[in-house]
Simulated scan of single mutants.
Amino acid sequence: MSNHQKRLSVPKSWPVERKTETFTVKAGAGPHGEDGVPLLIILRDVLGVVDNRKEARYALAQDGVVINGESASDEERPIGMFDILALPDREEYYRVFPDEGGRLSLTPIDEDAAGSKLGKVINKHHVPGGEIQLTLHDGQTLLAGPEYATGDSIVVTNDDEEIVAHFEYEEGALVTAVTGTHAGQIGRIAEIQVTAGSAANNVVVEQEDDDGFETIEEYIVVIDENFTGGDQE
């Protein structure tokens, strides 16, 4: 199987130029599905800390790249929404966040903030023993109490998977669109329009300096004020 991907066919979330060359690296197996961006692209094309695959492999062999608290070992590992990327030797820390237009971008954060990451709860169910298991947007699972609902967001520490913050999916919540026409835009939920049948619920989002927007529930993630730089206070 080829480890190359045609640039013209990569997902819109990938931060690559589509017409400069024919091929780019293909994402390996891992979290985030087809929207996950190969680590090599982040290191080479976005951050510019390596020039090629060989240099990326060397950096990984030296434990020079940490993702969500764990040393990365595969340059094709997918990186996706809200992942935490750390380059400890360079004292650089980033959160993956969608920019306006839907491409994944890197937001610099401090070392303390790099110790945990945000996750959207996309499923919850009871497991043997009566406990509740949450599934997050990137496939991570963890046991939690009954107070968390599908659509909520939680902040989980990277070292011991402790939930340290909880943001409910409700009217008035601060949210961002992570895909679709309004990807990267931030506002507050004005209304959640529940749709009968199997159709997706619609969400109306208001913004202070704009007309706001509407999108489907699946595209919305509740976020923390820290994601806005204070603009939405």
Rank of each mutant, 00 (worst) to 15 (best):
A72I: 00
E76M: 07
G80E: 08
A86P: 03
S73W: 01
D89R: 14
A86F: 00
F97M: 09
E92Y: 05
Y93Q: 03
Y93H: 13
P78Y: 01
E100D: 10
R95L: 09
G101K: 11
Y94N: 04
F82K: 04
E76D: 10
L106C: 05
L85T: 01
L87N: 04
D83L: 02
I79F: 03
F97K: 07
F97I: 15
G101D: 13
R95M: 11
I79M: 05
I84W: 06
I79G: 02
L104K: 09
L106Y: 05
D89N: 13
A72W: 00
E92I: 04
L104W: 12
P88C: 11
E76F: 08
I79Q: 01
R103N: 10
R95D: 07
S73L: 02
A86N: 05
D99L: 14
R90T: 07
R103L: 12
P98H: 12
E75N: 04
M81Q: 11
I84E: 06
R95P: 07
R77H: 13
P88A: 08
S105T: 14
S73D: 05
L104T: 10
I79S: 01
F82H: 09
R77K: 14
S105N: 13
S71W: 01
Y94E: 01
G80S: 07
D89A: 14
V96C: 07
R90S: 10
Y93P: 07
M81T: 11
G80R: 01
S71T: 12
I79H: 00
D83I: 04
M81W: 15
M81Y: 09
E91I: 08
L87E: 08
F97V: 15
S73M: 02
R77P: 02
R103C: 13
S73E: 03
E92H: 07
R95N: 14
E76K: 11
V96L: 06
R77F: 13
S105Y: 03
D74A: 02
F97E: 12
S105I: 10
I84H: 04
A86V: 02
D74W: 02
D83M: 03
E91M: 12
F82P: 06
R77L: 10
G101N: 09
F97G: 08
P98R: 12
L106A: 06
D74I: 04
L87Q: 05
Y93F: 15
L85E: 03
E100R: 15
L104H: 09
D89H: 13
A86K: 08
A86H: 04
P88G: 09
G102I: 12
L85M: 01
L85G: 01
I79Y: 00
D89P: 04
R95S: 12
A72P: 01
L87I: 06
E75G: 00
I84F: 05
R90E: 09
V96D: 05
I79C: 05
R95Y: 03
E76A: 13
D99Q: 09
